[in-house]
Computed example of a mutant assay.
Amino acid sequence: MSVAPDPFEALALERQVCFALAVTNRAVLAIYRPLLEPLGLTHPQYLVMLALWDNAQSKKGPLTVKEIAGLLQLDSATMSPMLKRLESLELIARTRSLVDERTTHISLTRKGAALRRRAVKIPPAVVEQLGVSLSELEHLREVLTRINTAALGGGTSATALA
């Protein structure tokens, strides 16, 4: 005679994907904090700089606030204080579009572009502190990207473990 599965087992805290993601997010950001401190950046500011450095490498010209917000999956209003702080640090320049004054273009300053050379040490330091292989982290990023895409698209294939 088999025992029927406990329907409440799916509610166990340790089985929740949301809990694992939240705890991991806090732990990983705690690793970034002291690494970013010498650069004078918070983690959200670092993400903005990554977007700008990527864009500068492709020589596409300045990004708009809306484009950066889209890349980082943030709303434009969240960006304003962060961009003001990066501008006060002289890492970026904000300029109004000549075509549409509601649009603000964000570009790297020389100081912001130069900071990239110091930031290149961050990813390997994070990998080392996490103690997992680069291939494991790349696989995790791929899985998380698929989960994010599904969650944003509203398409859920939720199971008892979700």
Rank of each mutant, 00 (worst) to 15 (best):
14 E>Q: 15
31 I>M: 13
39 L>C: 12
54 D>S: 04
30 A>K: 11
3 V>R: 13
10 A>P: 00
64 T>A: 14
35 L>N: 04
27 A>E: 13
14 E>I: 08
20 A>S: 03
49 M>L: 10
46 Y>D: 11
28 V>D: 02
50 L>F: 03
41 L>D: 12
59 K>W: 02
64 T>R: 14
23 V>L: 10
36 L>Y: 04
9 E>L: 06
63 L>I: 07
51 A>M: 05
34 P>K: 02
19 F>P: 00
44 P>K: 09
9 E>V: 01
29 L>D: 07
38 P>A: 03
30 A>L: 08
5 P>L: 06
31 I>C: 13
39 L>R: 09
63 L>C: 10
31 I>F: 03
21 L>F: 04
34 P>M: 04
16 Q>P: 00
17 V>G: 03
4 A>T: 11
15 R>E: 09
26 R>A: 13
43 H>D: 04
17 V>Y: 07
26 R>D: 12
4 A>F: 08
20 A>Y: 02
6 D>V: 01
24 T>A: 12
67 E>Q: 15
3 V>L: 14
13 L>H: 10
34 P>C: 03
27 A>N: 13
31 I>S: 08
62 P>Q: 07
37 E>S: 15
49 M>H: 07
40 G>D: 09
66 K>W: 07
10 A>Q: 11
62 P>S: 13
52 L>P: 06
12 A>E: 15
25 N>F: 05
12 A>Y: 04
12 A>I: 04
15 R>I: 02
25 N>W: 07
57 Q>Y: 00
16 Q>E: 12
11 L>H: 05
42 T>V: 05
4 A>G: 02
44 P>H: 06
26 R>S: 12
39 L>G: 12
26 R>C: 09
48 V>E: 15
53 W>S: 09
49 M>F: 05
30 A>N: 08
52 L>V: 02
45 Q>D: 13
67 E>S: 15
54 D>Q: 08
7 P>D: 04
37 E>L: 13
43 H>G: 01
21 L>Y: 00
39 L>H: 14
23 V>K: 10
14 E>H: 14
38 P>D: 07
54 D>W: 00
54 D>C: 03
25 N>P: 00
42 T>D: 14
24 T>P: 00
32 Y>V: 10
38 P>C: 03
65 V>N: 14
36 L>S: 10
7 P>T: 04
6 D>Q: 06
61 G>L: 08
66 K>F: 01
33 R>C: 06
35 L>R: 01
25 N>D: 14
25 N>R: 15
9 E>Y: 00
15 R>D: 11
9 E>D: 05
8 F>Y: 08
49 M>W: 06
40 G>L: 06
10 A>C: 06
16 Q>W: 03
40 G>W: 03
10 A>F: 00
29 L>K: 12
53 W>M: 07
53 W>H: 11
39 L>W: 07
12 A>F: 08
34 P>Y: 06
63 L>F: 06
23 V>P: 00
16 Q>I: 00
10 A>G: 00
52 L>Y: 03
